[in-house]
Nucleic acid binder design. Structure first.
Length: 425
RNA sequence: GGAGAGGUGGCAGAGUGGUUGAAUGCACCGGAUUCGAAAUCCGGCAUACAGGUUCUCCUGUAUCGGGGGUUCGAAUCCCCCCCUCUCCGCCA
């Protein structure tokens, strides 16, 4: 959520920046509401002040045993106008909040302008895509012999679900364990275990609600309270700070969590229908940092490097992309995507997305810390995949496949595989 | 699932209709004392929003788990919900 003060001070400037990311701000509606708000709020508060002081004098008069009837009639005269004013103010404020809640974050000045993914900027490449001396198969074909079973997933749950057995399942688990170990031991993150279902307040806090409800799975906790399945651990982990005033010394907070993620993938019909790339349920190891505002851009570089480190250790070629204004997520001020090389697709595919949200989520969550002046100030929040486990499995199956259909395990994973160096054949 | 207790400021903990945004203690900040420190003393210390002002200041409004109600006036009374704790039952 943007600072409403910013919109009041310079709505045209804000609208221009939002336009760069393809969002059209309803300046007219906002301005009209703002004009109304100012008048109605001032009047409401005046009336409330009058009522309060009259009520107070009733108390005083009563304690002195004086007749309070004249004051009572005076205060009664306020009733109707006050009630009407309060109702109108509540309506205006609700409407403004709704409007504001749907406005995406402003892009950071270092973000290139662009319309869509085609205008993202390649920042760097690591590793060299392997040249195969045989026809490289895709992960579906490689995985079939190793226990990766999409038909079973479809039988149990439908499209976009998979079952893994034996070696594939073991490799999947090994990847998550490995990532957690690297981030906790070498990168200083605290491992957290969090709920996989969260309430609407949490979803609002990180920005999934109210705008993206159709992307979420949900269930009813009781007749009128919904619980949402997390689309990423970012939601429960970042919301740990919701409503808190953190001690400055406790920052930065660095969390890593391994969770399943659930996404309805509404609107992606026909895309990535084959294989594990786009599933309704997948595992991810997520990095979250909660930092002081002045540290967030350094933290963003650091967090991205932490995700890159996993790819490097696994010896998977990747490139780092700086997303342009038009391709960034709703709440992000700046995002790097890491894209891993997939030989069967002959291209790089997203395996991690690392974003700095600045105060956008913190404002929605009222997540603050005490600054040097001892005043509460909004923190900055960041997160990034470190990495998406399912897609990492895909990358290993494809990049490390052998002509005989087996898959060589990256050396760093061998200890996590009980010493197994090769799956299949 | 049954029975009971409770949710108040960073923390602990008073407060059952009226100058209560809220006693007191701790923590924290400033000052005094001291060669310095501890102890002691004095003062300050919630958040959000609005208006004025552009001062790091004044005025106002809202906020005592959440929502609704009664009332001129609600932390305090009524209703609904959420959460925490204790005991019993059940259970991984």
């Amino acid at each position: 959520m943007l600072d409403i003060q910013l919109l009041r001070a310079d709505i045209e400037g804000v609208a221009a920046k939002l336009k760069a990311r393809g969002f059209s701000l309803d300046v007219a509606e906002f301005s009209a509401l703002e004009a109304d708000r100012k008048a109605v709020q001032t009047r409401t508060q005046e009336l409330q002040a009058t009522r309060n002081s009259l009520s107070k004098s009733i108390g005083i008069a009563k304690s002195r045993g004086e007749d309070v009837a004249p004051i009572m009639t005076q205060v009664a005269g306020l009733g109707d106008e006050l009630k009407a004013a309060e109702e109108k103010l509540a309506y205006i404020q609700t409407r403004m909040q709704e409007l504001l809640a749907g406005v995406p974050n402003l892009p950071h000045e270092s973000v290139p302008a662009g319309k869509d993914a085609d205008e993202n900027l390649e920042v760097s490449r690591w590793g060299t895509p392997r040249v195969f001396d045989f026809e490289a198969k895709d992960h579906v074909d490689v995985g079939a012999a190793l226990g990766l079973d999409f038909e079973a997933g479809a039988k149990l749950s439908g499209a976009r679900f998979a079952v893994m057995q034996g070696g594939a399942a073991r490799l999947h688990r090994a990847l998550a364990q490995f990532m957690l170990d690297v981030h906790t031991r070498e990168h200083g993150y605290t491992e957290v275990y969090v709920p996989y279902m969260v309430n609407a307040d949490s979803m609002f806090g990180t920005g999934q609600l109210p705008k993206f409800e159709e992307d979420l799975f949900s269930t009813f906790k009781n007749a009128d309270e919904k619980l949402y399945l997390i689309p990423t651990a970012e939601v429960p982990v970042t919301n740990l700070a919701r409503g808190e005033i953190l001690a400055a010394e406790s920052l930065p907070r660095k969390y890593v969590a391994h969770t399943p993620c659930f996404r309805s993938e509404a609107g992606s019909y026909g895309r990535d229908t084959r294989g594990m790339i786009r599933q309704h349920q997948f595992d991810k190891v997520e990095l979250v940092q909660i930092v002081k505002p002045e540290d967030s851009y350094a933290a963003h570089e650091e967090l991205t490097a932490h995700a890159e480190k996993i790819l490097q250790l696994l010896e998977l070629p990747y490139r780092k992309m700086l997303l342009c204004t038009g391709d960034m997520g709703f709440g992000s001020a700046k995002t790097y995507d890491l894209e891993v090389w997939l030989p069967a697709q002959n291209t790089y595919r997203e395996i991690s997305s690392c974003s700095n949200f600045e105060a956008f989520q913190a404002r929605r969550m009222q997540a603050r810390y005490r600054n040097e002046k001892n005043k509460p100030e909004l923190v900055h929040t960041l997160n990034g995949s470190g990495l998406a486990v399912g897609r990492t499995l895909v990358a290993i199956l494809e990049n490390c496949q052998n002509a005989d259909g087996s898959v060589s395990i990256p050396p760093v994973l061998v200890p996590y595989m009980g010493g197994v160096e090769k799956l299949g054949s």
